[in-house]
Design a protein around this nucleic acid. Structure first.
Lengths: 183, 183
DNA sequence: CTATAATTGTGAGCAGGTAATAATAGCCGG
DNA sequence: CCGGCTATTATTACCTGCTCACAATTATAG
């Protein structure tokens, strides 16, 4: 009997690990045991109830999505002079980190810069066609990245921009972006 | 009276837009009205109850996190010859799109490339120090991006890599990455 | 065969609601 | 100033998916 219990509990654990949206009811049916058994198992495993699980997923998600998700502008716009320059800030979080080195992954720094560049070109429909970038020093969680994009030259079909990112007064990123205007 | 109501409802809307975790109770206190008023407002605005909102966030999140979140390697590794080349694929989704142009935002393409480059350098602790990249054509949702990173030169403290991304047999991205080795 | 472990059942109570119905307050036009 | 309308508040019953406490049953190992 004890073997069955352990078996069920470990299955329960992994089942809920990759699908937190199951009710005790559904779990009870899946394992062909009573709802109370499922509750006892959850207690023993320290697994919270459905609603708490969903809340946790939603919360994580909320943090992570902000870090690099569907936002059009990554970071928060701080200053904006149309056709001249824009400044955005982004707080580096643990979600952005490459574990081995504990440094912020380059794509996040690039994303802040690129999205600001695209935003600056907002007079029309712009897409990034090229960029030459340097990541000048490693960035750690907790740093506040201040990104400045300045329009260098505006041609008929292209915009050239210089984008730099600083943190605690030292340069961490510098890049030249070329955006193409399609309309 | 009508003005007050509209005011409150629009505030309610935007409040819940960027914080779906508020109960009717809390909202009622915030607006100094009864709980029923809040419920009526939600009805009129078609806003579901707290639990449904949280569930929605959790669900989205579940999908979105997969697209571009805390993963170390963005995309799925397809081929890997240590010290030579690696290939990853990434399906472009609606979450990656810049609304105005309906094209995938450059940072996603960059992220796939950069994370693959870092992965390739996995023998040691590598960080991106520079990159020169071209986005050769717009990419739309639904395309499968196949990214190839090849090691060009390995120096004592640096790795040079060529990274290209293709989709439906045409080149969409090409870049040269330089990674620094710290250990 | 019995002591212990595992399972099942029962009832009360809670949070955060829905739904329906009624009563009250505030304002506006005539 | 009063009738009518909208907005607001209150009240009650009910729902889901639990928790908590307690009891009863079943299984099984020693």
């Amino acid at each position: 009997m004890r073997a069955k219990k352990r078996q069920r509990q470990s299955e329960l654990q992994s089942l809920l690990d990759d699908n937190p949206f199951l009710t005790d009811q559904e779990l009870a049916e899946r394992f062909a045991v009573s709802i109370q058994t499922i509750r006892l198992d959850r207690m023993e495993l320290g697994i919270p109830e459905l609603r708490e699980r969903v809340k946790m997923v939603a919360n994580d998600a909320y943090a992570k999505i902000k870090s690099l998700g569907e936002e059009e502008l990554i970071g928060d716009l701080w200053q904006f002079e149309p056709e001249v320059r824009g400044v955005s800030t982004l707080d580096a979080t643990m979600e952005m980190i490459y574990e081995k080195t504990m440094t912020v992954r380059a794509e996040h720094i690039f994303a802040q810069a690129n999205s600001l560049a695209v935003f600056m070109a907002n007079s029309s429909e712009a897409i990034t066609v090229g960029a030459s970038v340097q990541f000048l020093r490693p960035v750690y969680a907790g740093e506040r990245l201040v990104c400045t994009a300045a329009i260098v030259k505006r041609e008929e079909k292209r915009i050239h921009m210089d984008v730099t990112t600083t943190s605690t007064d030292s340069l961490v990123f510098s890049g030249k972006f070329i955006l193409g205007i399609s309309v």
